[in-house]
Design a protein around this nucleic acid. Structure first.
Lengths: 405, 405
DNA sequence: CCGATTTAATTTGAGAATCAAAAAAATAAT
DNA sequence: ATTATTTTTTTGATTCTCAAATTAAATCGG
């Protein structure tokens, strides 16, 4: 009884070597073999062998040392290795309330083309949503003169409870039904590797691959938008929990029987710091001056409007408390507060940081760094693409190892 | 320039194989080679090779199949492998407020002897505490007729902020000074492998090796005692955070500007559900009936005392909120509420579980199981011993691999 | 301009860990 | 006794990796 595809221990080892090299190259952009050896702890001989294989497979390329390094350094010049962008085209897709954003990148991470397709309604039946996704992808491909068949893989990011290991959506604000097997649905329309993930996790991925978490193996990303999301990276992996619905930072409770949240429960952090929560309170301001957007509210506060100020102040204090709790629980190296708009301007103020500091368990060791990162509107799609790239990468390596047999 | 102790990739692989076999044997108690192969995914050939080595090293033994398995099963009978208890003697030591508990176990986990030595004062200078620990260990060894030199390793568990990777104590309620290198201090008195850990993490270890977390790779242990502690096991490893001071569940904030905690901050969960918090409130009861212990308070509540009832009810609600937050963040497979006394009787009631359920993000998937586990007073020491056993195990394997070269 | 020096990459040969398949061992069934 | 069955061990091959030696490609110094 031959055991065919049970991963052998040696196979795993081999895979991990290749994976490591590829990841190192991706993390560094362009890096010489000798530095890969240093970085990964492998011997130069092994790096040579592996990179030869990756070169042959067309996944990486040698970068000719552009300019003479003029600075007198003797010895054989190092030849850097970089990813071959044209090895694959990969799509990241974000389903938002009012539009679907698509971004196509190459294997190296270069953005080829993006597209935003408005949605007429925010919540749809699964089939309807799939059609919309496919349409958005097609439009994007057409715009960039890319064949749909050239897409090696894609990832769809959506708000809600997603079990990424199964491409399964327990619940999403974009879907009218619960418990949808999005992977299967999309698979009927598209013939490429398909992944579905929670959007906050995708931002974490984006930070890890392209952003401020590039060289960090353990960090936490917090997104503030309509709701509040969190992505946790532990040991270079996204932490997901058993059912795939962990890291629901926005729905951790910060107040017994507190404010009503869009999830129907009370006292969620989101119900104090999310967009809708602030605007809900802002409506109590005198009618004429009622701010319709966070920007207006924030401006009113800056101009000395006491009520607006107190709304933002409370949100800030709640946010500080939430941040402190995260630090007390995870003790991460780094916290990245990511967003597409300037939520940070009023939420991540020095006062909030100070308040957070005072709610963190006191230790004579430096606090985790808290940084903010404003991305463009493409943040989400970029994260989705990053995730898909990683998955496709892993698939390539796996195929490489199998083919070698 | 030969690179001597940089762990080679092959060495890691080899180590992992041996480790895996040993762990499987420990987890299963006694298990045949073929089942180890099935369990770990290795080939039977490899298991034979590895177990031969472990047998020769004296770490495991063959268990003769006791009774004829009468039930007609043909074929060569399987020979189970078990740990050799006499391979090592290991001490677990818990430093509590009023005493030091020591437990000596053998390599197989059998309890050989335990001892409790009262302490005259709860907080001491490092040197003083070390002396007390050594004295307690000596007394325990004498009681069990064990030579101090026969102890292969020990672990000291203490409440507070401990960086176990460095055996370093940022702060502990048992120490008068901060930032103590306990490992170095103890090393001057004892000549064996020494480990220092946070006590909640040790309970997690105990649950993982001997308790309800035996076959679970991801779970969370919550301890309620004087304070509230948490141990997080992710992927069969204790999660510690970067500075080694994560998982401070007791000091997560559940109320803005809330009740005063012993840590000096406000609104910590511990300040609502810890022993001292309940007794603090209970003092407001009519003087004569003031309960001096949790047991009395709990009894009063059961007898219909409204004030006592409301104290416990609020504690329960806060605890439910804390539990729900943990689930929302970690989405664990299992939560074990561990304790030496019956805190569970009033904290882990059906009402609390129900309230927790209502504060958890709603998913059409079964809730994480919440179980309670009452250990004897030896719980902590047992956890410490479990941790030390694991570490010593790993050390043995490492030595085995190195010696083979 | 040419050898000496330096650094990077590759080749070579060997060691080690694993696995598949075959063989051996130990038992039950017939 | 013979056959069937199951576990364990042995054998031989594979292959992943590494150390050391070698080759490659540059600078430096005279």
């Amino acid at each position: 009884m031959p055991q065919i595809d049970r991963p052998s221990h040696t196979g795993e080892l081999r895979e991990s070597g290749r994976q490591q090299v590829l990841e190192t190259i991706r993390a560094q952009g362009a890096i010489a073999r000798i530095d890969i050896a240093r970085e990964t702890g492998m011997s130069p001989a092994t790096v040579t062998a592996i990179s030869a294989e990756l070169l042959e497979a067309g996944l990486i390329r040698e970068v000719q040392p552009e300019a003479k390094p003029t600075t007198g350094k003797r010895g054989r010049p190092r030849v850097s290795l970089a990813l071959r962008g044209d090895a694959h085209k990969i799509a990241g897709i974000k389903v938002a309330h009012s539009s679907i954003t698509v971004l196509v990148i190459d294997f190296e991470g270069n953005e080829l083309v993006d597209h935003d397709m408005p949605l007429v309604q925010a919540r749809m039946e699964p089939e309807q949503l799939c059609n919309a996704i496919v349409t958005a992808l097609e439009q994007c491909c057409r715009k960039g003169s890319i064949g749909l068949a050239d897409i090696s893989g894609l990832c769809v990011g959506m708000a809600g409870l997603v079990d990424a290991t199964r491409n399964f959506v327990y619940w999403s604000s974009s879907l009218t039904s619960r418990n949808v097997d999005m992977g299967a649905h999309l698979g009927q329309h598209l013939n490429c590797a398909i992944f579905v993930e929670n959007d906050a996790n995708l931002v974490a991925k984006a930070e890890h691959l392209f952003g401020k978490g590039r060289d960090v193996s353990d960090f936490i990303v917090i997104t503030i938008e309509h709701g509040v999301g969190m992505g946790v990276v532990i040991d270079d992996e996204i932490y997901r929990g058993t059912r795939g619905c962990g890291a629901e930072f926005g729905h951790t409770k910060v107040q017994l029987s507190g404010a009503l949240c869009q999830c129907g429960q009370r006292g969620c952090l989101e119900a104090y710091v999310g967009d809708y929560a602030l605007l809900r309170e802002a409506r109590l301001l005198s009618d004429e001056a009622t701010p319709q957007s966070i920007g207006q509210l924030s401006a009113a506060a800056r101009e000395g409007d006491a009520l607006a100020g107190s709304i933002l102040e409370r949100a800030g204090r709640m946010f500080a408390m939430g941040l402190a709790n995260i630090i007390n629980i995870f003790d991460p190296e780094l916290i990245i507060v990511s967003g597409t708009h300037s939520s940070m301007d009023y939420l991540l103020t020095p006062q909030v940081i100070e308040e957070m500091r005072q709610s963190v368990v006191q230790v004579d060791a430096p606090l985790p760094e808290v940084v903010q990162h404003s991305w463009g509107q493409l943040m989400w799609a970029k994260g989705a693409a990053a995730y898909a790239v990683e998955k496709v990468s892993a698939q390539c390596v796996r195929r490489l190892v199998l083919d070698a047999v």
